[in-house]
Write a protein that binds this DNA or RNA. Structure first.
Lengths: 219, 219
DNA sequence: CTCCAAATATTGACAGCGTCAATATGCGTA
DNA sequence: TACGCATATTGACGCTGTCAATATTTGGAG
């Protein structure tokens, strides 16, 4: 009995849907992200995503080519959403210095809210950086970061030292990314135990951000 | 014809060695690390390591249990070696402030020299943190980091603010780990292009480390 | 010295995975 | 209406981790 005969007997809604799904690509992305959220980056597979949608194991090939294709689209979606949240944080900040902290907090908040996706986004061996969706999402992130640092360094006027901007972007990104990465990987757990209050992650991040500003006074 | 009969005919040295390898655990670890270096974290597999050593596909089970066991021992070895190099850098530094930079440089140098291993070390889902070897290696790393920060914060005397030490450890570790992670993942390539000279990675790291110290003067 | 138990290694099987080729189905258009 | 292209299925292949059953070797107890 073919899949279509089954569908004709049981009705599309009850089993599998029509032969042509109609919106399979997005459905697969949603299923894949659910898998990522539920089982982590190791639980993500083409076959599992296909099964979750109720479609055959080779169906994803038409839309993503291979596993790296699916993962790249997923990562691109992640970078897009991260950029949105960072921009929102940027717009709400009053001073340029507040803006840097706000961006950093948005970055970490995204990693906490989407640990599996965040992991995937920074595993280049699982991604195809030539995928247009991923490429443009990454370029967008880069200009956002660079713009924020330039705004702070320029202090309103333009023409800040380019080397200082490169260093600033690298330093700010490294600090926040390192924190997010270590946190998501569970490496900060022993340190978090020394921070009291609810939401110790946020408190520790605040400590880190302010300790950077007060460098020299800690001693 | 059994494996032993073959060995009796061809000689142990020529094909496969004796039935009992004698040092299979270490040989598998070496093969696995070679695999990791050659093909990255995705190319690591029990069967490939076994094949490289010339042993049956299920032989690793006796020594590591499962794949996570092998990966955990590999990661433990990595953390041990990293700690050695960080301690060496620490001992060579003159001032306490130099020491922090030296540790950071050693950390990044290790990541550059062993990218696959470094990746593995910070993918907890691939590791079993209950493995004694990994547990103790991680504990050693933690005390090293904490000690270095406490020495800087204490300035020779003891009794520095514990909260400041937690913040300092987190900040220093986050900054350097973020830099190493982004670098190994290829994410800093666009920024590295703006740094002239041979060894741009080291130059950029120097910029980052000094920009942290000069915070406020960049503007 | 002998023999037996424990440690170590092999073999074969199974399910899950990504990927490919061949085939089936349905939608839009000429 | 009929054709063509996009989409989906089926079946196969080799790779993987893991397990159970078996084979071999080693080392120590008697």
């Amino acid at each position: 009995m073919s899949r279509t005969e089954q569908a004709a007997q049981t009705g599309d809604a009850e089993r599998g849907g029509p032969y042509h799904h109609g919106n399979l690509k997005q459905a697969l992305l949603d299923a894949a992200e659910a898998l990522l959220r539920r089982e982590g980056v190791g639980g993500l597979s083409l076959r599992a995503a296909a099964a979750e949608v109720g479609v055959s194991h080779a169906a994803p090939k038409n839309h993503f080519g291979d596993l790296r294709g699916l993962q790249s689209e997923l990562a691109a979606s992640g970078f897009r959403r991260l950029a949105v949240e960072m921009r929102a944080a940027l717009d709400e900040a009053a001073t340029a210095d507040d803006a840097m902290d706000a961006i950093g907090r948005a970055y970490v908040a995204f990693a906490i809210a989407n640990p599996g996706l965040f992991n995937l986004m920074y595993r280049s061996e699982m991604l195809d950086s030539d995928r247009p969706a991923l490429k443009s999402a990454l370029a967008d992130m880069a200009t956002l970061l660079r713009g924020a640092v330039a705004a702070r360094a320029g202090g309103g006027a333009s023409g800040a030292n380019p080397a200082a901007i490169v260093a600033g972007v690298t330093a700010a990104w490294s600090l926040v990314h390192g924190f997010a990465t270590l946190l998501v990987d569970g490496r900060l757990a022993p340190l978090l135990a020394h921070v009291q209050g609810e939401n110790p992650e946020g408190a520790l991040l605040d400590l880190v951000l302010s300790s950077q500003k007060a460098r020299g006074t800690v001693r």
